[in-house]
Amino acid sequence: MAEQVALSRTQVCGILREELFQGDAFHQSDTHIFIIMGASGDLAKKKIYPTIWWLFRDGLLPENTFIVGYARSRLTVADIRKQSEPFFKATPEEKLKLEDFFARNSYVAGQYDDAASYQRLNSHMNALHLGSQANRLFYLALPPTVYEAVTKNIHESCMSQIGWNRIIVEKPFGRDLQSSDRLSNHISSLFREDQIYRIDHYLGKEMVQNLMVLRFANRIFGPIWNRDNIACVILTFKEPFGTEGRGGYFDEFGIIRDVMQNHLLQMLCLVAMEKPASTNSDDVRDEKVKVLKCISEVQANNVVLGQYVGNPDGEGEATKGYLDDPTVPRGSTTATFAAVVLYVENERWDGVPFILRCGKALNERKAEVRLQFHDVAGDIFHQQCKRNELVIRVQPNEAVYTKMMTKKPGMFFNPEESELDLTYGNRYKNVKLPDAYERLILDVFCGSQMHFVRSDELREAWRIFTPLLHQIELEKPKPIPYIYGSRGPTEADELMKRVGFQYEGTYKWVNP
C-alpha cells in the first residue's frame, strides 16, 4: 500500500466541504435556525453545542446559521458558553472563530407547556436576519415526558411559513410498544414523516454505516452471507464503567431499553437485511423493517440478565456495585447486563442465532459485530482449526478484520490463527472521521433520513421486546451478580454456547 501524504486539518475539512456542497440537498446560502429545546441540560452542553461548534469551526454548516437555545432556566448566552465550552476542545488559535460562533447564538427562556412562551420564541426567531423565511431545525434534547406539549406548541407557534421545518427526537422513544405508539401517533398528527428525525446516534458511527458497503459492494461476501456458512452472529456493546452516581436515570430504563432495543437491534438489521433497491432512505429502511418483521418476540429462556457488584480487589469506582450508587433505588432489580438470542425467521437466516450482548462495568470498552462461520467440513488438521470470524469493530479503534487459519512457519503443516486486517487509523491517516452527532446533524440539514429511525421500524423493535420488558417488570427477577471489570455473568457464556457459538479464547485482536 502506497504511503499517504499527511494533510493538514484545513485540507481534510476542505475535502469534506467539497463532498457536502456538491450535493443538491445542502442549501449552503439559505438562512437556517437550529433550535435546541432543553438548552440547559446535560445532553445540550456535552453533545449538541459542542457538535454545532465543530461543524461551524470546520465550515460545514450553511453560511447563515443561527443557534437558539430554549429552556425553562433563566440563562444568558454567557451562561450557555460557560457550561458548554469546556466540552468544545477549542484551541487558543480558534479564539476569534469561537467569538464568531457565540455571536450567532441567542437564548430564550420559557415554559414547555405555555403557548405564550412559544409565541415569544417565534418572535425572537423572526427578528433574526431573514428569520421569518429561514429553515428551522428543532432538536428535542428533553425528557420524553414533555415531548407531547413541546411538539404541539412548536407546531402551533414556531413553524417557518416559507422555509422547511424538521424536528429531531432523542431516544428513548417511549418505554414499550404502547407508549411508543402513543408518542408516534401524537407526533405524526403534527408533522409529516419526512419532517421527523428520530435519532439513534449509533447509526451515525462510521463502521455501522460501513456495514452496507461491506455487504453490498464486495462480491466475495454475497455468496457466504447466509445460514449455510454463518453459524452465529454476535452483536456486542461493552462499557468498562458503571453508573457513577447517575444511576437514578438509568434505573428508569435499564440496559435493554438503553442499548439493546435500539443500538444493537439497528446493527442487527444492517447485518441481516436484503440488498435495498438503492441507497435512498426509504429503500434502506424498507429492508430493515422486513428483517424486524421476521423476528419473533424474545423468549425468556433465551435471556440472561445481570447486575454488577463491587470488586473487592478493585480501586475507586470498581469497588462499588450498582446498588451502592446513592441515586439507585434500594434493592433495585434493574439489569445492567443483558444477553438475548433472537432468530430472523426467513430463508437466508433460518436457524442462525443472533446474540445481542450489552452491559456496564465490564472488562473493556468495545462495540462490534462478529460473524462466526461454520467449521470446515472434512477436517484434515486433527481438530487444530478454529472457526473463521469476520469482525466489524465499531469502537474504539474502528477496524474490519477476518480471523482465519494460516500455516505456522516451519517444517510442518501446523495451522495457527491469524488475521486479515483493515484498521482505519492506519489505512486512512488523512481522513477526519466525523463524530456520530456531527454526521447525523449534517444529515438533518441535508434532509437525508437514511440513518434515522422510521415509525414502522420503531414499532417493530418495541413489538419484539415489550413482552419481555413487561414480564421483567411484573416478576422482578433478581439479576445474576457479576463482578465489576469482569466479562459479565458466566451464564451468558453458557447461553451463547448452547445456541452454537464457540468461544476459543486463544486469539485476541490487537490494534496495530
Rank of each mutant, 00 (worst) to 15 (best):
N210A: 09
R166V: 03
L137Y: 07
C232A: 13
R215N: 03
K45F: 07
S73H: 11
Q161T: 14
T76N: 14
F56I: 10
Q119T: 15
D228E: 12
R227E: 07
R246G: 02
T145Y: 11
S123Y: 15
R182G: 15
E93R: 09
K46F: 03
A231Y: 04
Y107I: 06
E93P: 15
N226H: 07
K82L: 08
I224C: 14
S117H: 05
T65G: 02
R81W: 08
R219Q: 07
K171Y: 00
L75V: 12
F237W: 10
S84G: 12
W225Y: 09
R81L: 14
H155R: 13
Y49T: 00
V208Y: 07
A39G: 04
L235G: 10
I196P: 00
K89Q: 14
M159N: 13
L203M: 04
R175E: 13
A71T: 05
M207I: 09
T91G: 07
K45T: 09
Y249R: 02
A109C: 15
A109Y: 15
P172N: 00
L140H: 07
E19S: 15
F250N: 00
R120S: 11
D113F: 14
V146R: 08
H124D: 11
L43D: 00
F250P: 00
I154R: 00
D79Y: 06
P92Y: 13
A115T: 10
N210E: 06
L211E: 02
Y107F: 12
Y197K: 02
F26W: 13
F56D: 04
I154F: 04
R175Y: 09
L96A: 15
A2E: 05
M207P: 05
E206M: 14
R219K: 08
C158N: 06
W53L: 02
E99Y: 06
K205D: 00
M207D: 01
S132P: 14
E170M: 01
E18N: 12
S184C: 14
T236M: 07
F102T: 04
C158P: 00
M37T: 07
G14Y: 13
F56A: 02
L121T: 04
A103V: 11
F253E: 03
P86D: 06
S8F: 04
M125W: 04
Y139L: 04
P50G: 08
L121G: 01
R198T: 02
R57Y: 04
P62T: 07
A39Y: 04
Q178L: 07
T10R: 15
L214S: 05
L183I: 10
A44P: 03
I234V: 13
K82E: 04
Y107H: 09
I255E: 11
S117L: 07
L235Y: 05
D228Y: 09
A134N: 12
N229G: 04
G245E: 10
S106P: 00
F237G: 07
A127M: 10
D113H: 08
T31I: 07
G174P: 01
P223Y: 05
A115G: 15
S8K: 11
A71L: 01
K45S: 10
A6K: 15
D176I: 03
L128N: 09
A71Q: 04
F26G: 15
P92H: 12
S180C: 07
I162D: 14
F216P: 00
N185F: 06
F26P: 08
D42Y: 00
E244D: 14
R198V: 06
L61E: 00
D251T: 08
L98C: 06
E244A: 11
Q209N: 10
P172I: 00
C158M: 11
T51Y: 08
E99K: 06
N165P: 04
P172W: 00
Q161W: 12
L121E: 00
R17S: 15
G248M: 02
A71H: 01
N135W: 06
A103K: 15
R17N: 15
I234R: 08
E19M: 11
K97A: 09
R227D: 04
L235F: 11
A116H: 12
V108G: 02
N64Y: 12
P240G: 12
I187W: 08
C232S: 12
L203G: 01
D228M: 10
R175G: 08
L214T: 08
Q209Y: 04
L211N: 01
E156K: 13
A109R: 09
T10H: 08
R215V: 02
T65A: 12
G69E: 02
N165C: 15
E94W: 04
E156G: 13
L60P: 01
C158E: 08
F102K: 03
R219L: 06
G204W: 03
E99V: 12
R246K: 01
Y202E: 04
L211G: 03
S157G: 13
E19W: 06
K47L: 02
G242W: 01
S188D: 10
H27E: 15
L43I: 03
H186I: 08
H124N: 15
Y49C: 02
G14L: 10
G41K: 01
S189L: 05
Y147V: 05
E94Y: 05
Y70L: 15
S117W: 13
G247L: 07
L20R: 14
K95F: 09
H201Q: 01
R9M: 15
Q161R: 13
E63D: 07
Q195S: 10
I154L: 13
P240R: 11
I199N: 09
F191V: 07
R120T: 14
A6C: 14
T145E: 04
S179F: 03
P223M: 06
M37S: 06
V68K: 05
N165I: 10
N210H: 01
I255S: 03
G248R: 07
Y249Q: 03
I224T: 10
L98E: 07
R227K: 13
D181G: 12
L142A: 06
S132K: 14
F241L: 06
I48S: 02
E19K: 14
A103Q: 10
W225N: 01
I196S: 04
R257A: 14
F21R: 13
D251I: 03
Y197R: 00
S106F: 11
E94C: 06
P143N: 13
H186Q: 13
Y112A: 03
R192A: 10
G131M: 10
E252Y: 13
N122V: 12
F88C: 14
R227T: 10
M37Q: 05
F241E: 07
E170C: 01
L55C: 10
T145W: 07
E94D: 10
A78W: 09
Q133G: 06
Q161M: 13
K171D: 00
H186D: 09
W53I: 01
K97R: 08
L20P: 13
Y49P: 01
R166K: 10
L190Y: 06
I220Q: 04
K238H: 01
F56Y: 11
L211T: 07
G59R: 03
L203A: 04
L183T: 10
D200P: 00
G23F: 08
Y202N: 01
S73T: 10
A231T: 11
D79S: 13
A71C: 08
H155I: 05
